[in-house]
Amino acid sequence: MSEVKKFMYLNRRAPYGTIYAWESLEVILIGAAFDQEVSLMCMDDGVYQLVKGSDTSESDMKNFMPTFRTLGDYGVRHMYVDKDSLEARGLTQDDLIEVAWEDYETEEEVDNIVEIVDADQVAKLMAESEVVFS
C-alpha cells in the first residue's frame, strides 16, 4: 500500500441547482476505495449540502441527502462546516445532519463528525491538507 495522504474535498455549491454537489459526492465515494485520510469542508453555499429535511418528491430529482449520512462509513473522518457561511445563511448546527463514524479495527466511535469551524481553523485545515479537491 502506498503512503496515506490527507485529502480534503472542498464543497462550495448548493445542492440541486447545479451538478457540483452531486459530482463531488461521487468523487468522495470513489476516493473512499483508496484508503486515504479524507475530510470534507463545506463553506459558502456548500453548507446547504448538509442541511437536513430535504424532500424532492415534487421535484423529479434524486434526494442525495441520505448518501451524505453514510460518508462516515466510507472513510470520511471529518466533515467541517465554515461558521461564517452558516451564520450568513441564518443556520445553526441544529439544522445540519449528523454523521456517525466508526473505525472497525479499533472500534473507536464518534457520534457526529460534522463540526463547525471558524475562519482561522478553515485556513489551517486547508494548509495541512496535501490535496484539496474543489
Binding site: 445542492p15 440541486y16 442541511v51 415534487e58 421535484s59 434526494n63 445563511r89 441564518g90
Partner: peptide, 29 residues
Amino acid sequence: KGTVAEDMVKGAMGDRKVYALKSDLMARA
C-alpha cells in the same frame, strides 16, 4: 429568514410581490 440577504428582499417587498416555488423549497429543506 435570518440571512444576509433578508433586508434586501424585505425592502423589495414594500412595493413588489415576492413568490417562491414550493417544490424547490421542499428539495432544499
